[in-house]
Nucleic acid binder design. Structure first.
Length: 465
DNA sequence: GCGGATCAG
DNA sequence: ATGGCTGATCCGC
C-alpha cells in the first residue's frame, strides 16, 4: 500500500526507513539454510524461494510437511525471522499455498488430481500469480470469479484474451504449473534500465540535463551487470501520468553514458515536438537486446554457450533459456492440459457462440472504459452515516466493509480514474497545446473500435468522448 | 520490431 | 495531487 494512503488510514502509523543492506544480509542467512534442502533452489526475489525437496525427502526418509516444519524451525532459530511455506505438486500451486497460512505457517496441497481440482474450483482468480487487478476485473466481467468458473466459458476465453491467456487459464483451472526449479543466476537477463521520478519538469535544458544524469546512472548499471545494449529505450511519464516509450537501434552496441545520451537525445527532442510544452514527471533509459561483456570463462561456468564466434559470451545461446520460457504463463510438455478434454466444446453451434461472444465482449468493453462508474459505492443502504469510512484518496464516504473498501481504493488509484481526474483538472490550463495530438489518437482508436478484436478496444483512450 | 499495457516483487 | 523502481511478457500493428 502506498505510504500516503496508509498514513491517512492510520495517522498513528510509524514509518521506518528502508534498509536494503539489512534485508539483503538477512536473506543471505536464510539462503544459507535452505541450500541444504535443495542445492539448486531458485530465488524468486529477496524474500521468496522455490525448492524442489523431492531428493531431500527421499534421502532423509522424511515427509514433505515434516521437512518443511523442520526447515522453518531451523530458519527461525538461526535467523530469528519466521517464514511461511506452501507444499504442492508444482510452483504455481506452491506459491498459492504459501499464502494460505501466513504468517509463520505452512500449507500442503496433496499431490492428487481430485484434491487439486477441488482446490482450484473455489480459488479466486486473483490468487494466481499472473492475474492482477486488471485481468481479475476482465475475468469478472465475463462471469469468471474463481478458477473453477474458467471451464464453463472456455470457448470464449481464447477470443477474448488471446491464445496465451487461454492456455494460462486452462492451467489455472486444472492446477497445472511448472515443476522445474533452477538457480536465478541461470536466467538470462533481457534488459538493464533505470528510471526516476521528479517534480514536474518542462524546461528543455533541464530535461537534457536529466537525460544526461539518467545516462550516467544507466552506464553504472551496464558496467555492474557487464552488458552492452543493441537497443536503447527512452521512457517518459508526462505530468498527466501518461507513459510513453521510444526506442532506437544505434549503429553499434552501447553502454557508455556519452553514447546512451547521444542516441537518446533525438528521441527526447522528437517527443518534445510531438507534445509541445510537455512536462515530465519521470524519465528512464533502458537497454535491451543485450550483449554480454563477461569473459567467456564466466559464461561457461554457468553453462552458457557462445553463439557467435565474434561476440564471446552472448547469452542468447543459453540452453536454459531455450528450455524455460520463464513468462509464468507457460507450462511445458506433459504439464500441459490434454486437448482431448475439451473436444465437446468444439461441437457447439457457431452462431450462438458468436452472439454470446459479442455480449461478453460488450460487457468487458463497458467495464474497461468506465472505471469511474464503480467509484461511488453502490450497496449497503442500511449502514448509518457515522459508520461509513472515508476514502483517503477521493474523500468520499465508503461502505465500512474491508473487502469493498479495499476494492474501492484499488479502483480509486487505477489509471483510468487518475486519467479522468487529470482530464478534468490539470489539463485545462494548457489543453490547447496538448490536445491536438491527443485528439488524433482518439480518432485513430475510434476507427479501431469498430473492429471485432476486444484487445484493440482496450487501446481506446479515456471513456469521456 | 515498435509501442502500449499488465504484472510481480 | 496522485503507486517508486526494475524487469518480464503479451498484444496489435
Amino acid at each position: 500500500m502506498a505510504g500516503f494512503v496508509a498514513k491517512k488510514l492510520c495517522p498513528q502509523l510509524i514509518q521506518i526507513p528502508l534498509n536494503f543492506n539489512k534485508y539483503t544480509s538477512k536473506a543471505q542467512e536464510v539462503r544459507e539454510i535452505i541450500v541444504d534442502y535443495d542445492p539448486r533452489f531458485e530465488s524468486a526475489s529477496i524474500d521468496e524461494a522455490y525448492l524442489n525437496i523431492t531428493d531431500y525427502c527421499e534421502k532423509n526418509n522424511i515427509e514433505p510437511a515434516a521437512a518443511i516444519e523442520q526447515l522453518r524451525r531451523e530458519v527461525q532459530e538461526k535467523t530469528k525471522i519466521t517464514i511461511s511455506a506452501g507444499i504442492a505438486a508444482n510452483a504455481k500451486l506452491a506459491k498459492i499455498c504459501s499464502n494460505m497460512n501466513k504468517p509463520n505457517g505452512q500449507f500442503q496441497l496433496p499431490n492428487d488430481r481430485t484434491a487439486i481440482m477441488s482446490f482450484m474450483r473455489d480459488l479466486p482468480t486473483r490468487k494466481v500469480n499472473g492475474v492482477g487487478r486488471v485481468f481479475e476485473r476482465e475475468l469478472d466481467a465475463v462471469g469468471v470469479k474463481t478458477c473453477g468458473d474458467i471451464y464453463a466459458c472456455r470457448q470464449y476465453l481464447s477470443k477474448l484474451f488471446g491464445e496465451k491467456a487461454f492456455s494460462f487459464l486452462m492451467g489455472c483451472y486444472l492446477g497445472l504449473g511448472r515443476t522445474t526449479v533452477q538457480p536465478a543466476e541461470e536466467f538470462e537477463r533481457k534488459s538493464v534500465g533505470t528510471e526516476s521520478t521528479f517534480g514536474e519538469m518542462g524546461d528543455p535544458t533541464a530535461l537534457r540535463k536529466q537525460l544526461r544524469w539518467t545516462a550516467e546512472e544507466l552506464e553504472k548499471d551496464m558496467v555492474r551487470t557487464q552488458f552492452k545494449g543493441r537497443t536503447l529505450c527512452l521512457k517518459v511519464k508526462l505530468h498527466t501520468f501518461e507513459v510513453f516509450t521510444r526506442q532506437v537501434i544505434p549503429p553499434k552496441s552501447i553502454y557508455q553514458a556519452d553514447d546512451l545520451y547521444n542516441y537518446s537525445l533525438p528521441m527526447l527532442l522528437k517527443l518534445e515536438h510531438e507534445f509541445p510544452g510537455m512536462k515530465l514527471r519521470l524519465m528512464g533509459l533502458r537497454c535491451t537486446h543485450l550483449l554480454s561483456m563477461k569473459k567467456p570463462d564466466t559464461m561457461a561456468f554457468f553453462g552458457f554457450k557462445t553463439k557467435s564466434p565474434t561476440e564471446g559470451g552472448d547469452p542468447s545461446g543459453s540452453p536454459i533459456s531455450l528450455k524455460r520460457k520463464a513468462n509464468g504463463l507457460e507450462d511445458e510438455n506433459w504439464e500441459k492440459y490434454d486437448e482431448r478434454l475439451f473436444e465437446d466444446a468444439e461441437r457447439l453451434e457457431r452462431e450462438d457462440e458468436l452472439k454470446e461472444l459479442e455480449t461478453l465482449s460488450q460487457e468487458l468493453d463497458k467495464r474497461r472504459h468506465h472505471g469511474k462508474e464503480i467509484v461511488p459505492n453502490p450497496k449497503k443502504a442500511e449502514t448509518t452515516e457515522e459508520e461509513w469510512w472515508d476514502c483517503p484518496v477521493c474523500l468520499r464516504p465508503q461502505s465500512p466493509s474491508e473487502k469493498e473498501f479495499n476494492e474501492h481504493m484499488d479502483l480509486c488509484l487505477s489509471r483510468q480514474t487518475i486519467r479522468d481526474v487529470v482530464q478534468e483538472t490539470a489539463f485545462v490550463k494548457d489543453v490547447s497545446k496538448i490536445l491536438p495530438s491527443k485528439k488524433a489518437k482518439v480518432e485513430r482508436n475510434k476507427n479501431k473500435s469498430t473492429s471485432n478484436d476486444p484487445k484493440q478496444r482496450k487501446l481506446f483512450f479515456g471513456g469521456h468522448s
